[in-house]
Structures are given as C-alpha cells and as structure tokens.
Design a protein around this nucleic acid. Sequence first.
DNA 1: TCTTATTTGCAACTTAGTTGCAAATGTAGA
DNA 2: TCTACATTTGCAACTAAGTTGCAAATAAGA
Lengths: 149, 149
Amino acid sequence: MIKGGKPGRLTLEAAKSVLRGVGMRCTAARIAVIQALEAAESPMTPGSVVDFLCEYGFDKSTIYRSLTELNEAGLVVRLDLGDAVRRFELLPLENDGAPEHPHFMCVDCGKVVCMSGFDVELKGRSRKARSPGIMSEILVRGHCHDCAT
Amino acid sequence: MIKGGKPGRLTLEAAKSVLRGVGMRCTAARIAVIQALEAAESPMTPGSVVDFLCEYGFDKSTIYRSLTELNEAGLVVRLDLGDAVRRFELLPLENDGAPEHPHFMCVDCGKVVCMSGFDVELKGRSRKARSPGIMSEILVRGHCHDCAT
DNA sequence: TCTTATTTGCAACTTAGTTGCAAATGTAGA
DNA sequence: TCTACATTTGCAACTAAGTTGCAAATAAGA
Ligand SMILES: [Mn+2]
Ligand SMILES: [Mn+2]
Ligand SMILES: [Zn+2]
Ligand SMILES: [Zn+2]
C-alpha cells in the first residue's frame, strides 16, 4: 500500500479483483500502478508514475510494461494530450457509467483537466464540409483560468 | 531548391521575403525548411523534416533550430497532435484569411488532416458545467475513413 | 569589400523509453 | 500445502529524439 496523492478509495482487494477480472496476474507492481493512477487528481505521465513508484523499489521498465498492459487490457486509457508526453488515466472500474470525456490542457502550466461535463460538436462551416473520420477522443488546449491574464 | 512532395507553390523569392518580413536572415536552411513545410500535404514531424533535409546536407541540429525559430517568429505553428510527436505547419503567408482550424489525427494510421472547414462547439451537459479555460486549439482523434472497418 | 553579429555543422551529450535474459513469483492443479 | 510452469520482474545495456557548446562559415549593412 502506498501513500501520497488523493485519499485513494481503491482497496487492495478491489485492485486485485479488477486485475483478475481481465485475466491478469495480481502482482505488486500492477497493484501499485493502479493505486497510483487512482489516487491521482488527473491523468499521470509515465514519468510521474515512474518517479513515484521507483521510490518504492519498482523498476522503471516494470512500470512502463504495467502501464502498457493495463492499457491493452482496457483498464487504463492512454491519453495523448499533445505535449509530447503520454498520460495514463484509470478508467472507472465498477460502474461503467462515466462516459468518455474531452480533456483540457493548459499550454502555460501544463495542467490537465477532465471535462467530464461536456459534449463536443463539430460543425461544418460549409454544406459540403465532411468529417475526415469517426472521432473518438477530443483534446482542447488553451489557457486555464489561473493562467489567463 | 528542393524536390519531392507537393508541387510547391512557394518560390525562392517568396520564401526570402517572408523571412525578411519577420526580421530573420535568409539562410539556405530556413528556406529549405519553409519550402519543405509548404510542399507537405499535412503538418510534418521534426523527424520527417530532418530525414528529408539531411539528404540535402543540412544538419539535424540546424533543422531543429530552424523549426523553433520559425515558430517563435510566428511563421510556423507547432502542433501537439498527441502521438508524442510534435508537428510543424506553415501558416498561410500572404493572406491572413485562413482561420485557425481543428486537426484530426487517425489513431490507426497516424494520418493528420487539417479540418479547415470546421468549427468546434463545446456544450456543457449540465447548466453549471463551466469551461476550465479559454480554448485555443482543438485536436480530434479517431479513425479515418480509410481505417474505419 | 570589410566587419561583425548571426547561423551552421559537428560531435558529444541528455533523457525517455525499450529490450533480452536470468532470477523471482503468481497461480493452477496434485 | 506443495509442485510445476508460465508469467513477470529487475537489471543493465541499448535506442532514438532532441539539445548544446563551440569554432568555422556566412548574411547583411556600412
Ligand atoms: Mn479524464
Ligand atoms: Mn492545419
Ligand atoms: Zn494554466
Ligand atoms: Zn487512418
């Protein structure tokens, strides 16, 4: 069990059952990664997960591998928020309710905010404007309230 | 002058006058970078510019520096399209008309499309949903028509 | 042409992320 | 509970993108 960050509502047993649910072995590293992501306020960069968990003796390569595997298993989304750094976010576990949502990233301070309350609509300016594909993820960049002059 | 890519409507003299217009010296490297970006169908990664121009004897560090300088001078936008790779796009030169536009990136093939014809609207689901800041750039990710099953 | 500040090429460096492999460990079955 | 085996881990070495310091080259103005 690991300290720091948000209270951390995810018990050890809950983490284990989530892993078993997708047919993955319950290892200390994976549990630690899940708990770290869960305790975080916003999506974490691999670097921040590594920095955090290396303190506890986990190896960098193990953490990268865990993040990738958890992502492949569908437990974690990998966000590409556009500062040339990936971020990982734990998906809602029990309740499938929380919908996909856009993310906002401040170009000044780098803060990432989940825009859970928003839908995005693309409107063609002309009649014949045709969407280039099926959209699945939206990122909004800009200046957060703190950084706006 | 450099071959390959799109026809390339930007003459040598035009490139030079653009550089002078922002008070930058006209060097072979900068002209080559501008022409490469101009000839490209869609925003280029630094890597692709480097690969392309190194063939002509330019040094990697020079190209990175040129891209950064052209960006700082406001001639080139640096897009963070979310595959942990930056991309550079030449801004419309004479006519200031072409508006900022969203970009679409296919998560399968990596293709980037400029969604010049689109506006994006964020709609709060609830009354009290408040935007986290002032949005300035939009990225849509998804599956392009070619890659959609 | 001359002068000087700017820019370039080079090579060395940094840093994030990846990989191969032997040792450690989780899990299913006896 | 113990065993056997496939999976996972730590380590160290590696890769690749991007950066940096510096002496040589060069653009631009006088
Ligand atoms: Mn989110
Ligand atoms: Mn564009
Ligand atoms: Zn901010
Ligand atoms: Zn595609």
